[in-house]
Design a protein around this nucleic acid. Sequence first.
DNA 1: TTGATATATAACTATTTGCTTATATAGTAA
DNA 2: TTACTATATAAGCAAATAGTTATATATCAA
Lengths: 115, 115
Amino acid sequence: MLQAKVELEKAANVLKLLGDKTRLTIAGILKQRECCVCEFLEVFEMSQPSISQHLRKLKDAGMVKEERRGQWIFYSLNHQSDYYGLIEDILEHIPDQTDKIKMIEKVNPTLQCGC
Amino acid sequence: MLQAKVELEKAANVLKLLGDKTRLTIAGILKQRECCVCEFLEVFEMSQPSISQHLRKLKDAGMVKEERRGQWIFYSLNHQSDYYGLIEDILEHIPDQTDKIKMIEKVNPTLQCGC
DNA sequence: TTGATATATAACTATTTGCTTATATAGTAA
DNA sequence: TTACTATATAAGCAAATAGTTATATATCAA
């Protein structure tokens, strides 16, 4: 298949955004499972605003999308993005994030707060 | 084929380095053709030290290698790098750099100086 | 040797980045 | 309404980044 090309400057921007350990991990997690902000708080030793800011950058670039459900806002990879193919290919090269998912599900903040 | 995984932190570093327009273009050119610094000078509107510094970062990360031939130092993608698969996959997504190669070959600084 | 070319390094600077704390917004529940 | 939870935004700051100019190093050629 002929590879769908991305304008160089836009590709560089996607790479810059994924060129941060926290955001690359977020992307790796979102490849496996949608998450809300409070779930990411279980994974990263970092303040909530900091995580929100990382998610905002990914969202502003169209790489992730958000969906509010009640008091939670769930983030997921944007499969409609022009960059999705690039992102997918990159994520193939990093270890799977099952350990991080386990950290989330052990505490399961969304359920705890909601019930 | 099972994808060879790269440690997340190292992958993030590779992405950060390619997340710069100049360095991503350099990588795209080197995918097609090895080049010396004076050839890159034809392509980028930027000082020689600036280009040398970009090449050094790519070299320090093991992404490119250099080979001196007389007064020139030729750079090429390091196919032996652990990251080569990742880099290759990324470069599949950017436009080919034939226009830049043409700019180099129009002036052909290596030949001009050497003959 | 001397002078020219090719490249690297050093020192500096302006901009960007990633975090912090404090505060605002939005939804839920009593 | 009030209180609480989830998330976003604002403001500030230290560190990193990408460029600059000036200078050093290395090769080539006379």
